[in-house]
């Protein structure tokens, strides 16, 4: 938004028409070499030179726009950017995302489970304003992809880069949880939350999901679990990132609902079952509403001064006028 730091200088704009008059319309504006150029009571020699007059008009317009800009510059034009500054800490949320091959199942046509989860996370993140969000992904093993951060841009970029089977074939739910807990352990946020998104049994990793969950419970970290995907035979197709081979087939899908329920109950979280696109969305909506912290914000106005752009534009315009008159039209007297 364009603002002026010292708008009182805008009063100088009143002078502009005065100078415009003096320059172009007053009797004194016709000063020149005195040479009789007409007949008494018949006027001066009529000369048809429309082109030259047009160029002169154009040139004058350039000049006066330049002057206008300079006058505006005096009043300190700047763009003010309103920035919402959060005064309190938000929650720390770590999303634990299953990337095992079964997440390639297409029960959210045309999307796979992973794509659907990613889309929903995108939506979820854009609704959060002040919460640090991190990402742990797991397959055979688990890694922290993004530490809890409010730099959502980085988070979403990294989320986008997640692919099926990046981390092997297994489903190490326990490991995923443990990594998330580890990275939340030093967090000083009031609320710490883990959102586990998976579609299968824990079948890999050295840490059992329940022990990871009890660690979380001890630290007061809530775990929300989301079981994703329908049960039954689901077609799947994905590219193995290591071999580049495209695998497809039919998945006999089932997941350990009891485990997920238990995990969430141990940590005062909740278990959600998302079998269809609609349900997945409502799941995230309910997590969103469960995890709200009253935000205290301050609006910070940052002003970016524009005087240099204004002066430069004005200089160019005035210089153009000068060159048009003095060089192009060779104005001499």
């Amino acid at each position: 938004m364009l603002t002026f730091e010292s708008p009182s200088y805008l009063f100088l704009l009143i002078l502009l028409p005065v100078f415009l008059y003096l320059r172009h319309f007053s009797p004194a504006s016709d000063r020149g070499l005195r040479i009789s150029a007409g007949i008494w009571r018949k006027g001066t020699v009529p000369l048809k030179q429309g082109g030259v007059k047009l160029i002169l008009l154009f040139s004058s317009v350039l000049f006066w726009v330049g002057i206008l800009l300079l006058t505006l510059t005096l009043s300190g034009p700047s763009i003010s950017i309103h920035e919402k500054i959060h005064l309190n800490r938000g929650a720390d949320i770590v999303v634990v995302l299953d990337q095992s091959p079964s997440m390639a199942a297409r029960d959210f046509p045309p999307e796979t489970r992973l794509d659907a989860a990613k889309n929903m996370l995108n939506f979820f993140v854009s609704a959060r304003k002040n919460d640090a969000i991190g990402l742990v992904s797991f397959g055979q093993e688990a890694v922290l992809k993004v530490p809890p951060t409010t730099d959502y841009g980085s988070f979403l970029r990294r989320l986008d880069e997640c692919h099926i089977m990046e981390l092997g074939e297994g489903t190490a739910i326990g490991m995923g949880l443990a990594v998330a807990v580890l990275h939340l352990s030093e967090s000083r946020a009031d609320q710490r939350v883990i959102i586990l998104i998976t579609d299968g049994d824990n079948n890999a990793g050295e840490v059992q999901p329940l022990s990871a969950a009890s660690m979380a419970a001890q630290m007061g970290i809530r775990v929300y679990t989301i079981g994703i995907g329908a049960e039954g035979d689901i077609p799947f197709e994905f590219r193995n990132p290591e071999t580049g081979q495209i695998l497809s087939g039919v998945l006999k899908s089932s997941f350990d609902e009891d485990l997920l329920t238990e995990l969430s109950e141990m940590t005062e979280g909740r278990y959600f079952k998302a079998t269809s696109p609609g349900t997945l969305e409502s799941v995230f909506r309910s997590i969103d509403s469960l995890e709200t912290i009253e935000e205290r914000v301050r609006i910070q106005v940052r002003t970016v001064p524009l005087y240099r752009i204004f002066i430069m534009a004005a200089l160019l315009l005035i210089l153009a006028d000068l060159l048009i008159r003095k060089v192009l039209l060779r104005e001499v007297l």
């Binding site: 991190g134 922290l144 993004v146 809890p148 951060t149 730099d151 988070f155 990275h183 030093e186 967090s187």
Partner: peptide, 13 residues
């Protein structure tokens, strides 16, 4: 390239 986005997580740092 942003390797670690702004975070309090010292471990990843």
């Amino acid at each position: 390239e942003v390797i670690v986005p702004l975070t309090e997580d010292r471990i990843i740092m």
